[in-house]
Design a protein around this nucleic acid. Structure first.
Lengths: 152, 152
DNA sequence: CAATCTACTTAGCAAGGCTAAATAATCCAG
DNA sequence: CTGGATTATTTAGCCTTGCTAAGTAGATTG
């Protein structure tokens, strides 16, 4: 409705909303595009995402993991159930506080994560491979910015 | 493992994969972050996404819609069931070919889309509002690039 | 006009999210 | 040192979203 009067001013509301809307739509389609690769590996995206936290960040409690993955505890309990059933992670009782459960990635988990990552992102990486350097820079910058924004 | 030797060369494999991986993870977290807003509106993301195609692109068959949304026909049948139940879209038999079903957004659908978009992206737009102009530019550029890449 | 193909729907499965409520352990007041 | 609150996780149960396989109805074609 109202167009931004100057480019240097604080971003006007409407364009920001349009950008947000397109981003949202993009995220939906991006995930649908890679889902089949995930399916092929037998390990779904949320599993790999949680596993990734464990592998790169070390053992975590269920609650910490839920926080990191932005889901509620019961959802994480189930994800960990599945990881454990597949031998990718295991629960350990915290000796300090027996209410807590520490979750740790197994060696198999580390290996599966590596393979899973590779398979999961193959299609996406293939598409990105066609980008120019400038385009890749834009994608990388935006990713960094958005990671920060979503954490906050 | 191997760092890019020059910034101008064609992007090496490993960095592209890391970018793809981070993008994927980002998409997961972005969608989780906005899901509650969707929930509040009573219209979920896939519904709004499909409705958006109808509103901005005009009536479509179930198959076309499924293709546009990158899901299988049965999934789209169900989404359209829900849209229709909510009075946001309606099915029309194709007079040329009675197997086909054309789906059209209703006036209510158009209105709900507008409201839903606003509500849905409010949280995201609020986060984006804190970005600098350069950061917003990066986000916009990357969005455009990725939209193109995912269509291809 | 019968076989086949196409478009959609139905049925049924699993994942992934949620809330509410149960269980268990810790903490802290008195 | 006990009893009530608080915290961590799990269980139960709901809903949505995806899928595949199989069913139905309409078009096409040999």
């Amino acid at each position: 409705m109202e167009k931004p009067s100057a480019s240097a001013a604080s971003p006007a509301g409407a364009p920001t909303e349009e950008a947000a809307d397109r981003l949202h739509s993009l995220a939906i389609h991006l995930l649908r595009a890679v889902r089949r690769e995930d399916d092929a590996s037998g390990v779904t995206a949320p599993h790999l995402s949680a596993l990734s936290v464990l592998v790169f960040g070390g053992a975590r409690t269920i609650g910490e993991l839920a926080g990191a993955e932005q889901v509620r505890a019961p959802s994480m309990t189930r994800i960990v159930d599945n990881l454990e059933r597949g031998g990718l992670a295991l629960r350990e009782r915290d000796p300090r506080d027996a209410r807590r459960v520490r979750v740790r990635a197994t060696d198999t988990g580390v290996q599966v994560l590596r393979e899973g990552r590779a398979r999961r992102i193959a299609a996406l990486a293939a598409k990105l491979a066609g980008l120019t350097d400038d385009e890749m820079d834009a994608v990388r910058s935006a990713t960094a910015v958005l990671e920060r924004v979503l954490r906050g």
